[in-house]
Amino acid sequence: MSTLHTVNKSPFATQSLLSCINHVKDGDAILLIEDGVYGAAAGTGVSDAVAGKAGSVKFYVLGPDLEARGIPATRLLEGVEVVDYAGFVGLAVEHDRAQAWL
């Protein structure tokens, strides 16, 4: 039993990403979408929090939202996987439930 968590707010504007990280269970997945994708970049104030959780939880980021914001794949934290919309659907199917962190 696992959960797909989505985060759609910038981690520099709200606590949503950090709160999500504090409530996930091992084996869950976190998908960053919309302004949430800013949380996937290396060298930011939240990078350590994301990297620290990446061992027990899989991080994904939505490609089109990254591209829209001009964030190149080279800037992403190690271990964060880019998915397209079909990948988003696949993640939703793979997990038992979805939880949005608004």
């Binding site: 039993m1 504090n22 409530h23 996930v24 269970k25 939880q99 949005a100 962190w101 608004l102």
Partner: peptide, 17 residues
């Protein structure tokens, strides 16, 4: 917080606001 994480994990449907 840990119990909250367990509670979330124990649901069929989660509605977020």
């Amino acid at each position: 917080r840990a119990e909250m994480a367990d509670l979330m994990h124990d649901q069929d449907v989660i509605l977020s606001f």
